[in-house]
Write a protein that binds this DNA or RNA. Structure first.
Lengths: 205, 205
DNA sequence: GCACTTGCTTACCGAACGGTAAGTTACCGA
DNA sequence: TCGGTAACTTACCGTTCGGTAAGCAAGTGC
């Protein structure tokens, strides 16, 4: 580990760069966040960023990959603690829904939007194994064992949508409904999410 | 109406500009789509766009407003045809889910993401009345009459998320799972959506 | 027939973009 | 102590961005 206590030693770690970039890409998107923005966040020159990551595209790729891995790890943790598949899915969705703003959710949501023009990307493959895990988990819920994989994916995607859509809308919802109503919504949302998830899982095809 | 048959008369209507801009903003986002892109799509100069709409921000505002109105009209149509509130909500969600790519859904989803940095925007207020309508409709479903407005909003938002999240992911899903599985998913999705919506609506708080 | 408006055009502008080139400074292993 | 390398820096570069200025052709009103 690098000696950071020495005076004048102010080198950033690779993760420092990725953290800042993740936040900015999540907030403003690929086009909206510039290399200069990332650099400014770390109080270094723009070329410091280009020194570590050869290009903006590369930086974005690494950010995406790290984020997908984070999400998958989050899923793995939950699936090892909770007992039934229903509880596991619910716990995971609640965890994702309550994660801080400017995080994985926002970034991956953007990737879903932005991916179309720029063909296939690295992060896509990380999402795949994550989604496969979700499908498998759904198909171990009582009643869902004989559901087709596409059908299970449809449900998984709907539940992901239910939680993710909300978690990107904080700012807008607050602007629309005001602080008071917004806070009520935040209180009600997890309760309703639990109801929605359970209701859906208990209505197998 | 302008005479368009006269030779050399090639003026674009205001809607021509808005149509092109809507598509591009939906596809690439506010930052990703340039005025030059919009102009190129219509085979006019970039300044033709600026002539009609004073600035990019203004153009985006009008695009957003028109899109929100379109969505609300779609909702109004459905709520006048179908009978029960449950059927109305289901019909609307299915309609939104099956709308063509590059449309309202994509654009509004982007607005939810991009809105945060740029404070409050015009389109926000159009979304409000739309969401209010949804809340009202949910609270006329049997069992939901006594649900709080935030609770009804939570459900409405989850159902919106379930359908919208999917409808922006076409390209990515196809890339991840391949043409075959993707088509199966597209076939299963509406069925599962109906199941999810009904299950949620029939589990009042 | 002539001013006025509409709907563009070409010609620019400064700022910001991603990226290259060439140092500079600090540390580290031999 | 000396060579190499990691982690930057300053100085540029060409392109694209949103936006301004000025002009011009075609209709419109009087």
């Amino acid at each position: 580990m690098a000696d950071r206590s020495t005076q004048n030693r102010k080198t950033r770690t690779r993760d420092d760069f990725l953290d800042a970039a993740t936040l900015l890409f999540a907030e403003r998107g690929y086009y909206g966040a510039s290399l200069a923005d990332v650099a400014a966040e770390l109080a270094v020159s723009k070329q410091a960023v280009l020194h570590r990551f050869a290009s903006k595209e590369r930086l974005y790729g690494e950010v995406l990959q790290r984020t997908a891995e984070h999400l998958e790890r989050q899923f793995d943790e939950v699936t090892q603690v909770e007992d039934s598949a229903e509880e596991q899915l619910l716990a995971f969705l609640l965890a994702v829904g309550s994660s801080e703003p400017g995080s994985s959710t926002r970034l991956l949501m953007r990737e879903l939007l932005d991916n179309a023009p720029r063909a296939e990307r690295a992060g896509t493959w990380y999402l795949k194994s994550f989604l496969e895990g979700l499908i498998e988990r759904v198909r171990t819920v009582p009643g869902w064992e004989k559901a087709s994989r596409p059908r299970a994916l449809a449900l998984a995607y709907q539940l992901l949508g239910a939680v993710n859509y909300h978690s990107i809308s904080h700012a807008t919802l607050k602007a629309i409904f005001g602080e008071r109503t917004y806070r009520s919504l935040e209180r009600e949302f997890p309760k309703q999410l639990e109801a929605t998830v359970r209701a859906a899982l208990r209505s197998p095809p």
